[in-house]
Design a protein around this nucleic acid. Sequence first.
DNA 1: GTGAAAGCGCTAACAT
DNA 2: ATGTTAGCGCTTTCAC
Lengths: 353, 353
Amino acid sequence: MARKSSRSTSFDVAALAGVSQSAVSRAFTTGSRIADETRTKVLEAALKLNYVPNSIASSLTTKRTNIVALIIGNLDNPFYVHVLHTFSRRLQEQGRQVLIFTVEPNSESDEAIMHLLKYQVDGVVLTAAQLSTRMISLCHDRGIPIVLFNRYIPGSDASGVRCDNVAGGALIAEAFLAAGAKNFALITGDLKGTTSQDRVRGFVGRLLEGGVKRTRIVEVEGHSSYEGALNATAKLFRDQNRVRPDALFGVNDIMAMAAIDALRHRIGLRVPEDLMVGGFDDIPEGRRLPYQLTTVRQPIEQMVDETLQLLHLDDPTEPIPRGIDRPIKGRLIWRNTIPVPLSHRWTEPEIQS
Amino acid sequence: MARKSSRSTSFDVAALAGVSQSAVSRAFTTGSRIADETRTKVLEAALKLNYVPNSIASSLTTKRTNIVALIIGNLDNPFYVHVLHTFSRRLQEQGRQVLIFTVEPNSESDEAIMHLLKYQVDGVVLTAAQLSTRMISLCHDRGIPIVLFNRYIPGSDASGVRCDNVAGGALIAEAFLAAGAKNFALITGDLKGTTSQDRVRGFVGRLLEGGVKRTRIVEVEGHSSYEGALNATAKLFRDQNRVRPDALFGVNDIMAMAAIDALRHRIGLRVPEDLMVGGFDDIPEGRRLPYQLTTVRQPIEQMVDETLQLLHLDDPTEPIPRGIDRPIKGRLIWRNTIPVPLSHRWTEPEIQS
DNA sequence: GTGAAAGCGCTAACAT
DNA sequence: ATGTTAGCGCTTTCAC
């Protein structure tokens, strides 16, 4: 037996209210010419029939679905969960919804694009994943704006919003320098990702500027994950002959946390007494008692705001922004994994929420 | 200047391929009568025009959107992130997508329902949130199946899939008993949520059966969150005159982890030497070096499978399953926060992945 | 301010 | 196997 999908339509409502179907449509469209009295009549009838406008049908004519696609590659990193949550909340406030596309971390999301095209989404946000330039123009040609969150694709005309990762990496380098570190280790993330590359570049660049020799900086791959960073840290300390670093930069917080765990529980080193460590992102987990991680905070709210602005959801007549790059400065949050140098003691105290 | 939404339609493709529009439709519908030759012609033309079928338009006639709504109330708990991820992956494999509705944890999600109704979703999954019975029938009346994930609503005819929380709670109680605990503490979650209630019930019930007196069990509210459990633990040990518990059950893993952190870093107690602790969920974070949490594993994959089955996405003619309750047994994972009694030593060794 | 009618892009009978 | 045609539920001119 087929399911009785007794969904009433605008015609049903019109009949009950004794008006035309277009009146019903108008009653549900804010800012359309309709007498208050008529609207009330319609709304009452609608309530009786449990009528809810079919937005699938309306988007056929309006060409707006009020759906935004979010392609996300790494839900294991709490940072991106937070990003997802922020987007969802903001969009819901505007009467829009997030259609989620999960892809393998750092894999091509071309297939996802092909799918979201079918859904006629109003815009797409791409985060923690790769994308070919072909797909970008495929979207743009159809009038679908796409903005990259925290990554950019060299040679493409896609716009993007990101944390200023180079400057952020430099912030950690400065903190290490100020705390008197001499030998540095670096756990990098996804090698293909611009996010990790930039943080590394900013970090190393600032160190070099500060007179640190290249040989005093070791790099290991952490693959942006907790497990990856665990292995990376082990590798770092396997070679006993090498000089032991006294400062370690985890290119994101989960890797920095993994490093701390490995240091304490496997290597037997104390943080920050034996080794200081810095992170990047400022995920809530890094604030927890065992970590109290000194890190660079990414201003998620602001980044999401800028992203939404670039999407021009409210005005589809706006031309799609192309080639725009909005780097947003992060802020160093002093906590306990880097000793605070005396000169910094009384500045920038963190207001704990 | 308006955005050129140069989306080509099935008519454009038909014209280029020299066939009728319905031939194009058939070419994109698997299992429809069409000559291979024709299909090839169509597909070639479609490729040239970058044509992608508009599934919004097709769902107008098919009455299927291939969209499943997921209402989620707590993205702060990694367990639910994992649930979301699993649903998304599974659904994508079937050519469907997740439309996400985030609501305040434990708040009514009635408003979310009103919104998802507009999108004509094929089904809805509700997790970590409340729902009125009125909304359930609103969905059911329209032929939209809704299944509750890990919760149930007394007196409603909504179906649900959940971990057998009562049995799971009992598992932790047994482990404590076997390890020789005498005084018990309990950090509860959301008081309104059936999940927490059931775990508490199973835990306390088993303890009582084991001859433990009610006075030996203390309960504090942890509000299902890390921060809440931190406070709860502090409260637990504030009163110095009270007998100190030697076993603590955090009704979910994040709360158990918070308790461990508080115990070690604030109270100055060792786990498990001074106090054993058990959790529930088996989130990956609980496996990490500092915790190695003994806990009850929720079989997410299986739970998601069952949920998807109840949704009958592939066969909308199936009647909506009503009042079905599918409790799925969890499994105790022995790790380091509860001393393994000798009798258990050689049984159920955990295969670490 | 309101109704009639056309049409958004597709699927599904129905013919052929 | 293929084309023709009538909708799906709505928005949007266009008259009145």
